[in-house]
Nucleic acid binder design. Structure first.
Length: 309
DNA sequence: AGAGTAGCCTGTAAGC
DNA sequence: TGCTTACAGGCTACTC
């Protein structure tokens, strides 16, 4: 599933291939009625045709194609969207929903099995991504910034990291990786993490994302529904993954068995030894629950979920 | 306001 | 074997 590293990999590949090229044709399949946002497909295609590609940027999981008239073609891959750069006349690709013909005898093919992907043609790219949090790979993203943005939240840290208004670009895979790297349990409430926790988490986030980019993204599961790069080849980061999808397998750090639970409806894999669960449910024998602790019912519910799997 | 969740979508895999 | 159900997940819209 495309997250920051997968979008960045495609951005870099496209920059090397289509920068300066002109879009000479546009065809959107009628079976992808939600693909083009804000304007009718006919208008979108008409306005895009004839435009030269002046730049390629990324913001969070958004890919931004800057056009020569100052407008921006913004693409969000969501779950299964891929951008392929193919010679005109190359064999068809499964689940192709749109084709953008270029002036170099190639075309950009938008493939998207689940049809969740969206694109916009706008005057200013920021209008579709106003609420995004900071870029995790910018120098301005520091442990203090992370703590300031996340530290006031009572939701599980896993859910907070997935909130794009807190931090832009993290998805389920890299969140699991970062939390494992930092030794933080996904159910820990964000407002219970200490300064040192946020320092480790910051490092874990940056490391996980950089590792992903260096490996050209993660391609798990079957090729059809997964991230592939502009030439159709998968990434390699799935071989480097420490946590995501490794339920039942040994933790690379301690050898213990990796476990899985649901956090905010998302599957989360973690090491119960390296990532200590939140405060225990049951007070030690003879001890009383102090009023400053979370209500017993809530703590019990949290641990029950953690034990279920 | 913040937290939690249904729905969008389709292919795969597990269960009966 | 064939059918049904659960699951995967980014994001929006909705409820509580």
């Amino acid at each position: 599933m495309p997250e920051l590293p997968e979008v960045e990999t495609v951005r870099r590949d496209l920059e090397a291939r289509v920068l300066g090229r002109t879009i000479v044709g546009c065809c959107v399949s009628p079976d992808a009625p939600r693909l083009v946002q804000l304007v009718p497909v006919a208008e979108f295609c008409r306005e895009l045709s004839g435009r030269r590609i002046a730049g390629l940027r990324r913001r969070g999981k958004y890919l931004i194609v800057d056009l020569d008239d100052g407008r921006a073609w913004v693409i969000h891959r969501r779950m299964s969207g891929n951008v392929l750069y193919r010679p005109r006349g190359a064999p068809p690709d499964d689940y192709t929903r749109a084709v953008f013909t270029l002036d170099d005898a190639h075309e950009l093919r938008w493939t998207d099995l689940r049809k969740f992907g969206t694109m916009w043609l706008v005057e200013d790219a920021t209008m579709v991504m106003e609420s995004l949090g900071p870029e995790p790979l910018d120098a301005a993203f520091t442990p203090d910034v992370l703590r300031q943005r996340a530290g006031g939240r009572s939701a599980p840290i896993k859910s907070v990291l997935l909130d794009q208004t807190v931090l832009a670009g993290m998805g389920n895979l890299y969140t699991d990786e970062a939390l494992h790297d930092a030794g933080i349990h996904p159910l820990r409430r964000a407002n219970t993490l200490k300064r040192a926790d946020y320092a480790r988490l910051h490092d874990g986030i940056v490391r996980a994302l950089r590792t992903g980019i260096a490996a050209r993204g993660s391609s798990l599961g079957t090729t059809l529904r997964d991230h592939i790069n502009v030439d159709g080849a998968p990434g390699e980061n799935q071989h480097a993954v420490q946590a995501y999808g490794r339920e039942g397998q040994p933790c690379y750090r301690c050898g213990g068995v990796m476990r899985r639970l649901k956090v905010g409806g998302r599957s989360s894999v973690f090491c119960p030894t390296c990532q200590r669960p939140p405060r225990r449910t049951h007070p030690a024998p003879g001890r009383r629950t102090t009023p400053t602790r979370a209500p017993a019912a809530r703590r019990r519910a949290a641990t029950a979920v953690a034990r279920r799997t």
